[in-house]
């Protein structure tokens, strides 16, 4: 043990919470890029489903611009659902989750790091592509910014809240629909306000109130959802 003299480095606890957060985030991003299907699939799903609407419903631009907010929002929600399941699955199966739970840092921040990584690879691409799809649905381009803001506030909420349900179900052998049954009802409020905000923008009504409410929901999810996820993970692993 001469080369790695451990007594010389009695540094337990010297790693700050910010560093623990950063290396967990980096690890998850690295994993996501090695498992490309996990984040490419939801993105492709989002693009394809939105583009099917003009073909199946009606190509008429007045009608399309009416349904555009709802279509984009619902598809974003379903795309998030698709990608959620991978958040803790692999870690649960290879035992990394136990390592994470036995970390000396508050689990809140480590779960938050995993949620951030998930949003960056699955939520952010959907937000960024949505203006193009909106234009395809004849959505007025001067209203794009409102759609963009509503999705920027909404997709992190979906990740944070979805994380609780994934954490609860990660230990179950066959999950099937249960994830959707837990997640979708919890996401109704953000869906309602997201589409209300965008529709209000379309009809020229003030949107600030809706966006402020969505911001408040996001802040609440930020501060509470990782705690719930952490507790759920402890239950699932036990």
């Amino acid at each position: 043990m001469s080369a790695l003299d451990l007594d010389r480095r009695n540094l337990a606890g010297a790693v700050s919470i910010t560093r623990a957060f950063r290396i967990t985030l980096e690890r998850d991003l690295m994993l996501a890029f090695r498992r490309k299907g996990d984040f490419v699939n939801p993105f492709v799903f989002f693009v394809i489903v939105v583009s099917l609407f003009p073909l199946a419903v009606s190509p008429e631009s007045v009608f399309l611009s009416r349904i555009a907010p709802g279509v984009i929002w619902i598809t974003a929600l379903l795309a998030a659902m698709l990608s959620l399941d991978s958040m803790y699955r692999a870690d649960f199966e290879d035992g990394s989750l136990e390592t994470l739970l036995l970390s000396p840092h508050p689990l809140y921040f480590l779960v938050l790091a995993k949620n951030c990584a998930h949003w960056l690879v699955s939520g952010l691409p959907v937000v960024l592509i949505s203006p193009f799809l909106a234009i395809m649905l004849s959505y007025p381009s001067d209203q794009l910014i409102i759609l963009l803001i509503s999705l920027l506030l909404g997709t992190p909420f979906l990740t944070l809240v979805g994380s609780i349900a994934v954490a609860l179900t990660v230990g179950l052998g066959s999950r099937g629909l249960i994830l959707a049954v837990i997640v979708l009802p919890m996401c109704v409020p953000i869906l309602v306000f997201g589409t209300l905000a965008v529709n209000a923008g379309l009809t020229g009504l003030p949107v600030e109130g809706y966006l402020a409410l969505m911001g408040a929901m996001l802040v609440a999810a930020f501060s509470l959802a990782p705690l719930a996820s952490a507790a759920a993970l402890r239950i699932s692993v036990a």
């Binding site: 540094l11 623990a20 690890r27 990394s96």
Partner: peptide, 24 residues
């Protein structure tokens, strides 16, 4: 029993994460 090694990461990346939360 499940050792906490992610199959998609290399040994060094795994080690960096699993020990790095305690010692840098």
């Amino acid at each position: 029993h499940r050792v906490g090694l992610s199959k998609l990461l290399s040994p060094i990346e795994n080690l960096k994460w699993s020990t790095g939360r305690k010692i840098d």
